[in-house]
Design a protein around this nucleic acid. Structure first.
Length: 272
DNA sequence: ATGGTCGGTATCCGA
């Protein structure tokens, strides 16, 4: 599969950039490698008043929406085609900038696009003992309820969902069953959410017996040799868009870039 | 079994 976008195709990428200001140049490098039409970011870690507003135009993405805060979280969408902001709720009654939504003005009609940064959930997989884990489960449950009331059509949902749902979305299913990101209560929650009318667009192309990761911890001397990855970053499409799916790319090479994020970009192509 | 490494406005917390 070509890694370059082709005419008539709509390529959407998602990347947990782990500080937009620190990695502005790498964002340009992602654009050079993938040439997505739209790129969704998480963990921008920049408050709106300090957002680097010039970089969108500088890398060929004049349409930019963002929702950030100091130090933590933050999401942003850069686009080559016009975006219309869509109201996004506060989840779990927290104004913590984990979701932004837009309509993408494609010639064939608008596509609704959601960019999510689901709470990581802390270290202890116990709702009662760990408020961060409770927040994560509540966030996923609220999002599920949201899409129950409003089933998706012509919708793409992307982001760092911080859950690796399949056995081969982690380097060791057995060893990670008790580790936050792969516990049964989380994977069940994620599957319930996706079940509200979405399809896993990357797994549409890659069979479930094949290992697939988008994140490797910084705490590993040699991330590639140990390859203890997890697939935390996802692209879902509403069921009506499944016939339009054309391909997927996980830019594993980006994990080797100098001063890179611990997540790599994930892209999906649609014929729309 | 343990601890390992990042980024932010930071000498700790979140990942």
């Amino acid at each position: 599969m070509s890694t370059k976008a082709r005419p008539g195709r709509f390529r959407i990428a998602t990347w947990n950039i782990n500080s937009l200001r620190l990695r502005q140049e790498l964002l340009g490098r992602v654009v050079g490698e993938l040439a997505p039409d739209v790129i969704c970011l998480q963990e921008t870690k920049v408050p709106d008043e300090l957002f680097p507003t010039g970089i969108g135009a500088a890398i060929g993405y004049p349409h930019v929406v963002y929702r950030g805060m100091k130090s933590y979280n933050g999401v942003a969408i850069f686009s080559r085609v016009a975006l219309e902001p869509v109201a996004a709720p506060d989840w779990c009654a927290k104004a913590d900038c984990r979701h932004i939504a837009v309509r993408v003005a494609l010639p064939s009609g608008p596509v609704l696009l959601h960019d999510f940064y689901v709470p990581a959930g802390g270290d202890v997989a116990d709702r009662a003992a760990n408020p961060k884990f409770a927040h994560k489960l509540d966030f996923v449950a609220e999002a599920t309820a949201h899409f129950t009331a409003d089933p998706p059509r012509r919708t793409v949902l992307v982001g760092d969902l911080n859950i690796a749902p399949l056995e081969n979305d982690v380097w060791s299913h057995k060893q990670l069953l008790d580790v936050v990101s792969h516990t049964p209560v989380e994977t069940q929650g994620l599957n319930d959410w996706m079940g509200r009318g979405f399809v896993d667009a990357v797994r549409h192309f890659v069979p479930p017996d094949q290992k697939l990761y988008s994140w490797w911890s910084y705490r590993n001397r040699d991330w590639a040799a140990s390859d203890r990855g997890r697939r935390l970053d996802h692209v879902w499409v509403s069921k009506d868009l499944v016939p339009a799916l054309r391909g997927q790319t996980i830019l594993r090479a980006a994990r080797d870039w100098t001063q890179t994020s611990d997540h790599v970009p994930v892209a999906v192509d649609l014929e729309l």
